[in-house]
Design a protein around this nucleic acid. Structure first.
Lengths: 203, 203, 203, 203
DNA sequence: CATGAATGAGATTTCATTCAT
DNA sequence: CATGAATGAAATCTCATTCAT
């Protein structure tokens, strides 16, 4: 029995991981469709094909589910973050990054989820931290690229890399929010967006 | 008798208006402290010193209260909007505007309320419209100033006034959001913000 | 002033009586459409074109309004009651009465109102009394006619007039209820109804 | 495990059925004492010894509870319905049926419940159908017996079985209503009632 | 780990009635 | 008498979470 439980444990771990994924995906869909507060734990469980009580074996509760989703964003942002680590002229790297990040936010679901999370983040420190952390990773890498750009003479000298990195992220985020709320296409404003950013950096 | 009822009506109207204000102020405080969804109609009524049932004589419900608050933002933004109507060199007008708007958003309450409203705006079209309308007013006036700046040769010729106006607003909004979430002071980043904006516009 | 109030009083009395009628009519319509419990005092006042508060100057409350409506039925039943007082052979009188009463109940509104009142009558003694009183009047007069019919040899001797009167009323009431619930026409069953009644009385 | 869950399911089902019964019984008592509209879901739950929220796990709401009660009447009427299926001379069968049905309605609870249901039936089609269906069963069986009585020469030829069946039911129902409202004993009028019915059928 | 009935606090909303004007 | 804002109790229903099985 003990041995069995050992091998079963591995199987169980895999099954459990699958369950967690299923639940998280279901939660994302629910939150997207109806918002965090309008979504009931029941809805999530039903959509995930999991019993209500069992959800509590995998997550501490509804709040915990949202926190994990916020944490998941990190994985989605990883490839975009990678772009900033690649070698190349700073302006070219920045350009590719802006395109990639804006494309990521062109999916309304990513934006809506972010707004939902932001809204919770204000009053739930743990979620706030996760959210800020994700942005912080982008900002740090972006800041580094900007620094390099300054050193290379590609960008103005009198800008603070870190601050500027924040501003760029906010510019893209803000444009994405607007795109969702006003129901306009992200790509139609991407050109002007890039232009504005580059103009702000040019020596 | 009929004449009297006329003056009585006015008195009543005034009293009713006062009540409405009281309730709205109370609601703002509640939403700020606990968020829209965590706030009960009961909490609002209690804080306003109004009976629960009576609140429903003045508003259709919680949702209606939020909608009116969203509408109220317009009044608060009016003086800032006025700045953009004043004569003067476009860069100077823009500078004063950015200062004023950033100062407005330096109050966390204004930002939190905006986030709260944005969050609802996604799924409640009527609130979404109000929110967009407020921003739209700013954007239109700002766009006009930018247009003037271009004509006067103060700003680059290859920018689209309307798009750029949006970007500037988003830049300030985004910075304000970050300031609240990261608990940093708005004024400490105002300089860099202005610098970035101006750089984006300079010919 | 005192003199005026005297003449005014009369005017007022008339106006007040009109108001009462208006309110009662409005209440009947409301009760018919939505039932007693689903109807709000507000609805009645609005429909009557009377202010909410003023309704309480004329009636003690919602319950009182229903009580007066129950009392009003008496007036509507009066002409039918009269038929039973007319001279003539008992079978003929009875026949005319059944026709008249069944015609009265052919109007669904009268039936629905009666059901509504019955339902309240169970737990509100005062309304119960009114309701029973109305039927009691009919029953008494009907009983007297039946008694005459027995004396004249038109009806069986071994029936109790009072009991039989009750049964006849119940037969008509019941048929009317069924007509409303099953949405069939009262007149289509009137023939069989009369036949059954007469057969029950024939010597 | 899966097998166990099968038996567990049955156990649960039994427990659930018990709960449902408990709630329905409690509801009946509440409706009897205070009427449908005066009874709160809370009252029912409390009386059933069930938590308020749990009631909603078994019924969709108050309305649903009443509907099920209306449906339950069928079971109570079954043995009476059976009497009409028994062989025997039509008059004797009819006599036994009238006695049984009148005895059923001699219990004020059955009558009050019926009135309560009738009252709701007017505006809630689903409940109306249930109510009519129960009566329809009785009427159909009764009609068949009357038809047999006519064939056998026990009853008049010029009566329509179906219509007459309706009339008989209404006669008993009406008498029962009166008995409750006037607080007289059903059995004291049963003799006259039977006599009247039989007289109406006799050739 | 899996299940879903059970809990009970709480949410929103309605409504008969009162009362100051 | 006329008005309708004010009251606050009560009603229905939801929901995150627990727990016995």
């Amino acid at each position: 029995m003990t041995d069995q439980s050992g091998s079963e444990g591995t199987k169980r771990d895999r099954a459990a991981a699958r369950r967690r994924s299923l639940i998280l995906e279901a939660a994302v869909m629910c939150f997207l469709e109806n918002g965090y507060h309008q979504t009931g734990v029941r809805d999530i469980a039903k959509r995930a094909g999991v019993s209500l009580g069992n959800l509590y074996n995998h997550f501490q509760g509804k709040h915990d589910v949202l926190a994990e989703i916020a944490a998941l964003e990190r994985a989605e942002l990883a490839p975009i973050l990678d772009l900033l680590g690649r070698s190349g002229a700073a302006p070219a790297v920045l350009d590719r990054f802006v395109t990639a990040y804006a494309t990521y936010l062109a999916k309304p679901e990513n934006v809506i989820l972010a707004i939902e999370i932001t809204s919770e983040a204000i009053r739930k420190p743990d979620i706030g931290e996760l959210f800020v952390a994700n942005r912080a990773g982008l900002v740090a890498a972006l800041s580094s690229v900007i620094g390099r750009g300054i050193s290379d003479g590609d960008f103005r000298e009198n800008i603070v890399p870190d601050e500027t990195a924040h501003l760029i992220i906010e510019l893209i985020d803000g444009t994405a929010y607007r795109a969702v709320l006003s129901e306009i296409a992200m790509r139609s404003v991407l050109g002007g967006l890039k232009d504005f950013i580059m103009a702000g950096l040019r020596p």
